[in-house]
């Protein structure tokens, strides 16, 4: 139903609005309505999941909160719209959400054909497989003939086809709309293997009745750079989303944390001064106030803090930084400087 409404909305919006949405509209729009609408996962532990009280937590969720903090100086001014994998782009295109931060893989076709712009990578991931231990499989190469459950409308579905074809193996794909239905079918024995991004596998395994009965196979079969996306054409809005992520990375690199950010404003390091807005007018250049990054770190934290809290050592997932470490520590997370 939601898909239908979104689709009709996009059709109507596309056909009846005489001019396309003007380029700089999103920020004004968000300011006017007083909150940010953020397209989120329907429930993926560590990335975007509502708890029993309806409070959202996760790495993606914190990026949305950081954007809200930068705009409103209040990280709670976000409304989360849970979206299934296949509905997410329509929701962004039609304007139902201002930004899509929903563990979405950045691919060329999505970037160029869907009317979207990806603004960065907030988590480097790769696709993996989970199987039941008693199946006696230790490598994805042994999955010849397996039934595989996956979520439709994902890059996962496409990589799966590529991988089995490249390795000359047969398989049967069973595709579902939602992550929960997919896992339920796997759990009920409909499939031998369950596939999604590696981070998602660990998060999903926690949902199983007894997680120790399932193992994640060692192969990572694809590149899955997950990042936020915005509508194509609103460059100012794209800049805000892009630099919100970079602000958190720069804060980590410069040692600015949620706890010490107020003292850091007195620090003499010119890089810190520029980041926190006591020098230069960087915030105004993207339509915000100059203390935009200060607000982000103060209310949400730097990248290391949100990583550890949501998916790292402070969470149930216990995922290592790995590729998501800063470039200075051998990882891929690298932010251009604020200057």
């Amino acid at each position: 139903m939601k898909r239908m409404i979104a689709t009709i909305a996009i059709g109507l919006a596309a056909s009846l609005s005489a001019t396309a949405a003007s380029a700089q509209a999103t920020l004004n729009n968000v300011k006017q309505k007083g909150f940010l609408t953020c397209g989120s996962n329907t429930g993926l532990a560590g990335f975007g999941v509502p708890d029993a009280q309806g409070n959202w937590t996760g790495l993606d969720v914190d990026l949305c909160r950081a954007i809200a903090a930068a705009i409103f100086n209040d990280p709670t001014k976000v409304r989360f719209i849970p979206l299934s994998a296949k509905d997410r782009f329509t929701a962004l295109q039609s304007g139902e959400v201002d930004v899509l931060v929903r563990n979405t893989t950045w691919t060329m076709s999505r970037d160029t054909q869907l009317g979207l712009d990806f603004t960065g990578v907030n988590y480097y991931d790769g696709q993996g497989f989970m199987v039941r231990k008693k199946l006696g499989v230790s490598s994805a190469k042994e999955l010849n003939g397996a039934s595989v459950c996956t979520q439709q409308g994902t890059t996962t579905e496409l990589n799966l086809a590529d991988y089995f074809r490249a390795n000359n193996m047969k398989y049967e794909v069973v595709a579902f709309v939602g992550a929960d239905e997919t896992f339920d079918a796997y759990n009920a024995g409909r499939c031998d293997a369950f596939t999604t991004d590696a981070s998602g596998l660990y998060a999903t395994r926690l949902k199983a009745a007894s997680p120790e009965e399932h193992i994640v196979l060692p192969e990572i079969i694809s590149k899955e750079p997950l990042g936020p996306s915005v509508r194509h054409g609103d460059n100012q809005w794209g800049d805000i989303v892009r630099w919100t992520h970079y602000a958190m990375l720069n804060a980590e690199e410069l040692g600015v944390t949620k706890a010490n950010v107020d003292q850091m404003t007195k620090n003499d390091n010119p890089e810190i001064k520029r980041l926190l807005g006591s020098e230069g007018k960087f915030g105004e250049a993207i339509g915000l106030t100059n203390d935009w990054a200060l607000r982000i770190v103060k209310h949400v934290g730097n990248y290391a803090e949100i990583f550890e809290k949501n998916v790292g050592s402070g969470s149930q997932l216990k995922i290592q930084r790995g590729q998501n470490a800063l470039w200075t520590k051998g990882g891929l997370q690298y932010a251009p400087p604020v200057r």
Binding site: Q93, S109, G153, E157, E181
Partner: peptide, 26 residues
């Protein structure tokens, strides 16, 4: 809802998502 690949599941689901051409597909 139950993963049977009918017209809506394949075409309105995966194909629409993959191509992003909502108006044509619908």
């Amino acid at each position: 809802a139950i993963g049977y690949p009918d017209l809506v599941q394949i075409f309105m689901g995966t194909v629409l998502n993959q191509t992003g051409q909502a108006v044509e597909v619908v």
